[in-house]
Design a protein around this nucleic acid. Structure first.
Length: 947
RNA sequence: GGGCGGUUAGCUCAGCCGGUAGAGCAUCUCGCUUACACCGAGAGGGUCGGCGGUUCGAAUCCGUCACCGCCCACCA
């Protein structure tokens, strides 16, 4: 015997185990002959992650698609896995070390630390996988992959080496976004622009050869800056070539004899150059150029062949000695910093430098100034543009095929408007900095050694290879077979210049690791075994669809497209379904700091995974954020209980699945009707899912289950099921109820896998029914709609609804059993009334259903499908109120008719609108007119009585 | 500066390849009845942000304005 309410908690864990035991989600499980492949790779959550609403939405949608495909008998793989999340994970473990007061990362050393991270991963890294299982995600967990697995690491190295050899990965010295807290470079995408209130300092730079006089503007040039501390590294001042104010400086520069300024505090002479970058509208129109600490200045420096002076250390402290590089990035010199600033942190230095300048009247003015400042998205620290050697991917080249594939429609975005965002970004893509100064990640497979004297190349000799053995082969080919090659763990001090002892060479591997997204970019093929030609790769690549949030289009989608197209013969996925962000009730982004996070696991505990899933699906309308309210989830929890009780009703009434039952053979109108409605609902749901219209799909099943199956079909079936007459009608109805219930369970299963699987199991499994709903066929019906049945049951529904409505409006006590008279009923109506006598009386609370040629005086009347039905209850009803009711309805219909008449009276409408539209209007008018006629008659009879 | 999205019932949102304004929640009224009070029946509630245009006809297409949100770039 089933419980009265659905208790998700007890059931969900048990069902999840049942799926596991049956290996129901293994790749290809449930595949039926001819089933084409359907594959999805999960957006790998961070190994440090725990389930938030975004994951819940993302994986619910994937699971719906995957479960439908599996039920459709396709060869399904949902590939799960996790991302090693370089920075995030390293931070977590470092924090843990600190909390436990253990030695820090640096004291521990690289090898030990990495070992420690692996240990952490084994112990605590699997949380999200378990949480996804609780959500019901039907991934093939036996194939779980991790971006740092041996196999995936091999793919990473192979890709790196090949791109390097193709010239698409290279090392370069240029400005990067440097995070002075994490002490690593980060990519443009990991930088957040934050608006901050700061100041704009107007500084006077004295002109060379003129005695500085604050009162005489010809003795200095004013530059405006938000970052005074970088002035130590200025190597020029730029003015616009068209700026009249600075015509003399421009002319001098163009004549090859630039006028210099004396850099305050430093005393270095730096030229005034003419460059379009300088905007006459901004500041003073003259701008200080610090090529080593500003991206724009860096470009100006390259254009004018200016030296770059690095003022800051990696920790953003002012250097003792500034490092000087030429415009090509070659180290050329060092220069002493003013010693009073050496070692100061950059913001402290700013204060002191401003103070020093003020002391000598070199500050013209200070304005409050609001501007945006780049911050690291992980550390929250102000990013420092920093001159370092890093590895870059030539993203521009790789982007071309990725753009083309979407333009050609080989990969489609849903909703399509995201293509624009994708195009925009790829068309303006910058080199992708892929090296990170971290320990946790894929160490870059590049080794450095000294150059041979005869080698004219610059810097150290680089060997890039997939492993040490391959690297050593290359090195031997370079240094000679007889040279002894050793590998050091770190660069030896003073390692520069030519290899002067070719008898023995020491190499060391690049210490940096790759950006986590580098390995994620390979996910669709690396998880399938690439670079080996595995059967999985052949079966499941390209994947069918990628489901992800828009915030990750650049980070991940675009890069998978680039890598997939470069290394595989086809795109990584056919469709990209982009879903929205889950926000809180008020539309704010959920964040821990705001404290408005709704924990999906808490909701699952309380209301069930199914309720949460159906809520998310029902709210996943394309192109719109989801504002999640708890009440909504409660509503869907109620729906689960409703379903549960409907199944309980079926059980109580012995509606058991009849093996081989063919819905087309149903004979009772009621059964033919529900069978047709079921077909419609199934078709609607299937089509909506195929179009990624999850909300429409959810609404279609929801409505069918509650408003059609429960509200009408089961109610209408009660007399047959419970009438005690037994016989063929009852058998057929029991079979039909069971059939419709099974269909509902199937249609709902992708949305609510747990309850439906449980109900499937408890509703007395019949022979020939698959043991697991998850592997049962998806409903595919045809030819079940029946106009006759629709007309008959439609009339029944309308009649009962009309009586109920009138009863309430005329204040007939709910308990009162009143008679009904069908006035001037047609033969069909009489027959139907007879057939459903008990049903009608039960649902409309009537004592009798009779017939009459005319409505009795004072009867309450209504019009149902063109015929009058009367409730002869003059004594219970307030006649005046009844008159008002009728008059109101007549008025309403009158307004409708007027509206239609205006249309039909419009010659243009009749002439230009499509024929069927005109006909439809005509029909509606006729119907309304007939109805009004009947109502007017009813009103007349009523008035006659009271008169 | 460039781009995208939003503005529809008290709330949260569907509908938007033009042709009778919908759902859930909330509200109000009623509730005989063993599938379900996490329920049933009924009701109220919207000039679809403003203005203009196209059209026989606009919530739906176009333009414009207002407000809200997001993304990208830049900011001396």
């Amino acid at each position: 015997m089933m419980e009265k309410t659905y208790q998700p908690g007890e059931i969900e864990a048990r069902i999840a185990d049942a799926w596991d035991d049956a290996r129901a989600f293994r790749a290809g499980a449930g595949r039926r002959p001819g089933g084409e492949s359907f594959s999805v790779v999960i957006p790998p959550p961070n190994v440090t992650g725990s389930l938030h609403m975004g994951h819940a939405l993302n994986n619910t949608l994937q699971d719906i698609l995957v479960r439908v495909a599996r039920m459709q008998g396709r060869d399904v793989l949902w590939q799960p896995g996790m991302d090693h999340a370089g920075i995030a994970t390293q931070m977590v473990v470092e924090r843990q070390l600190m909390e436990r007061q253990e030695p820090g990362r640096r004291e521990m050393g690289r090898e030990k630390f990495v070992e420690r991270v692996w240990q952490w991963k084994e112990e605590s890294g699997g949380t999200i996988g378990r949480q996804l299982r609780r959500l019901g995600a039907s991934c093939d967990w036996s194939r779980e992959r991790f971006t740092m697995d041996e196999g995936l690491s091999r793919a990473v190295r192979k890709v790196f080496v090949q791109l390097y050899r193709e010239g698409l990965i290279y090392r370069d010295k240029r400005l990067v976004n440097w995070d002075p807290k994490l002490l690593t470079a980060i990519s443009d995408l990991e930088v957040q622009q934050v608006e901050v209130k700061g100041h704009l300092w107007h500084l006077r730079y004295p002109i060379e050869g003129k005695a500085f006089d604050a009162a005489d503007p010809s003795t200095y040039i004013v530059v405006a800056t938000t970052r005074p501390e970088t002035m130590l590294g200025d190597t020029a001042v730029a003015v616009n070539p068209k700026d009249e104010r600075y015509a003399a400086y421009v002319a001098a520069y163009q004549a090859g004899k630039p006028i210099n300024v004396v850099l305050p505090l430093v005393g270095r002479l730096i030229p005034i150059v003419a460059d379009d970058y300088s905007d006459p509208e901004k500041g003073s129109g003259a701008v200080k150029i610090t090529p080593a600490h500003d991206f724009n200045d860096f470009e100006v420096g390259r254009r004018h062949d200016l030296p770059m002076m690095n003022v800051l250390s990696k920790e953003a402290l002012i250097l003792q000695e500034m490092q000087v590089f030429d415009s090509a990035g070659r180290a050329v010199d060092t220069k002493p910093s003013p010693q009073e600033f050496a070692g100061l942190e950059r913001f402290a230095a700013r204060k002191m430098i401003v103070a020093a300048l003020e002391a000598t009247a070199l500050v013209e003015k200070i304005e409050p100034y609001t501007h945006t400042v780049p911050h690291g998205d992980r550390s929250g620290e102000v990013i420092e543009p920093f001159l370092t050697d890093q590895w870059y991917v030539d993203a521009k080249t790789l982007a071309q095929p990725a753009l083309q594939a979407v333009r050609d429609g080989r990969t489609k975005f849903v909703p399509q408007n995201w293509e624009k965002t994708y195009f925009e970004w790829l068309e303006n893509i910058q080199p992708w900095c892929i090296s990170r100064q971290l320990w946790w990640g894929h160490q870059i497979p590049a080794w450095f050694g000294l150059r041979l004297p005869q080698d004219a190349g610059q810097g150290l000799r680089t060997f890039v290879a997939t492993d040490e053995r391959e690297m050593l082969e290359e090195a031997r080919a370079y240094y000679g077979q007889d040279v002894e090659i050793s590998i050091a763990s770190a660069p030896t001090p003073g390692l520069s210049g030519p290899a002067n002892r070719p008898a023995g060479v020491t190499l060391y591997q690049d210490e940096d690791v790759l950006d986590t997204w580098f390995s994620s970019a390979l996910w669709p093929f690396s998880t399938l075994g690439w670079p080996d030609a595995t059967p999985e790769l052949a079966r499941y690549y390209p994947t069918s669809v990628l489901v992800t949030g828009f915030d990750i289009i650049f980070f991940w989608v675009a890069r998978m497209m680039m890598m997939g197209l470069h290394f595989m013969p086809d795109v990584p996925f056919r469709d990209v379904y982009i879903h929205a962000l889950v926000r809180d009730e008020k539309g704010a982004k959920m964040s821990k700091s705001k404290g408005n996070v709704i924990d999906p696991l808490a909701l699952i505990d309380e209301l069930g995974a199914d309720a949460l899933r159906l809520t998310l699906a029902a709210m996943a309308a394309q192109g719109r954020d989801i504002k999640l309210a708890r009440s909504r989830v409660e509503g869907y929890r109620n729906f689960a209980t409703k379903l549960w009780n409907a199944c309980r009703f079926a059980e109580i009434n012995e509606c058991t699945t009849v093996a081989g039952f063919d819905p087309a053979t149903a004979t009772l109108m009621l059964n033919r009707w529900i069978v047709g409605e079921a077909e419609k609902a199934a078709a609607e749901t299937t089509a909506a899912i195929a179009a990624y219209r999850f909300n429409d799909a959810a609404a279609a099943v929801y409505r069918f289950v509650w408003s059609v199956f429960c509200d009408w079909y089961l109610e209408l079936a009660k007399p047959v099921l419970q009438g005690g007459e037994g016989g063929a009608d009852r058998d057929e109805t029991r079979a039909t109820v069971a059939w419709a219930r099974d269909l509902i369970l199937a249609l709902l299963h992708p949305f609510m896998p747990f309850v439906t699987e449980e109900l499937w199991a408890v509703t007395a499994p019949a022979e020939g029914r698959p043991a697991l709903l998850a592997l049962s066929p998806w409903p595919a019906l045809g030819g079940l709609e029946n106009a006759e049945a629709e007309a008959e049951i439609g009339w029944l529904v309308d009649l009962v609804s009309a009586i109920r409505s009138v009863r309430t409006e005329t204040s007939v006590p709910a308990a009162a059993q009143i008679p009904l008279l069908l006035v001037g009923a047609s033969a069909a109506t009489r027959e139907r009334a007879g057939r459903y006598d008990e049903t009608i009386r039960r649902l409309a609370r009537l004592s009798t259903v009779g017939f009459a040629d005319q409505a009795p005086a004072g009867a309450v009347q209504m019009v149902v499908r063109g015929e009058v039905a009367a409730l002869p209850i003059a004594e219970v009803v307030d006649l005046a109120a009844e008159r008002t009711r009728l008059a109101k309805e007549i008025e309403r219909i009158g307004a409708d008719i007027d509206k239609i008449d205006r249309k039909l009276g419009n010659a243009d409408f009749v002439a230009r609108a499509p024929e069927e539209v005109v006909e439809e209007q005509q029909e509606r008018r006729d119907e309304a007119a007939a109805r009004r006629q009947k109502l007017e008659e009813a009103l007349a009879r009523l008035s006659a009585v009271s008169a």
